[in-house]
Amino acid sequence: MTPDQQVRPLIELQGVHKSFGSFPVLKGVSLSVQDGGVVCIIGPSGSGKSTILRCINGLTPIDRGTIRVGSFAVETLKSDKDLVPLRHQVAMVFQQYNLFPHRTVLQNLTMAPIQVLGEDPTQVRERALSLLAKVRLTGKEAAYPGELSGGQQQRVAIARALAMQPRVILFDEVTAALDPEMVSEVLSVIRDLAREGMTCVLVTHEMRFAEEVADEVFFTDRGVIVEHGPPSTIFKAPGDERLKSFLEKVL
């Protein structure tokens, strides 16, 4: 790796604006994520956290600003065909799992690599089986998502994201719909990924987890990033008043 690549972040957002109708959700968001970095975005509901993630993989088109992921200028990608290579590199895991209910667990993992990326089914299947082992779901290959618990479904969703062999995974409040006892099984999978060097961007309400895994934490409020820094600073010595009052409420 050349020094130039080392300093150049994998993801870079600059002055991103987005309104839904007349309501501005993002009012000039800038952030960057290093390759292999783990970034957590925290903040009150409706502050635009999820919208930031959805903009990064092009699910939500932006009004103004630039988003760069690797060599892609995301705001310039318009057609489905242009977006395929981006979505190959940037996978996403959702709060509601968003699995394919009519396909088995194994098919959920293999569908996109075969149908979208046109990869060899035998290889994809092997990779999918080892990913299921990784998220500790071996034996559930033939089950349907509706037959699994929330925590198991979310682990399938993570494995499905990994099956695309992405460079980045975006996690959108992935434990928010889970029972407390299932939260830990999902978090431990994410923790493993972060340790292995997968670039992760997490929107989360799990403050202790954010403190543990994040290299950098961004605090959003009303469409702007109010404060960012290493978790030790954000959680132990917050500067901004809004961040202080937010942390008082959630910690």
Partner: peptide, 28 residues
């Protein structure tokens, strides 16, 4: 809509999403 979004985030085009996700579930 979440199921559709899951497909879109995996790179499925609108037509592929229709064929592989929306139509099979919708017909059922």
């Amino acid at each position: 809509s979440q199921t559709v979004e899951g497909a879109r985030s995996l790179g499925y085009s609108r037509l592929q999403t229709f064929r592989h996700v929306e139509l099979p579930i919708g017909l059922r």
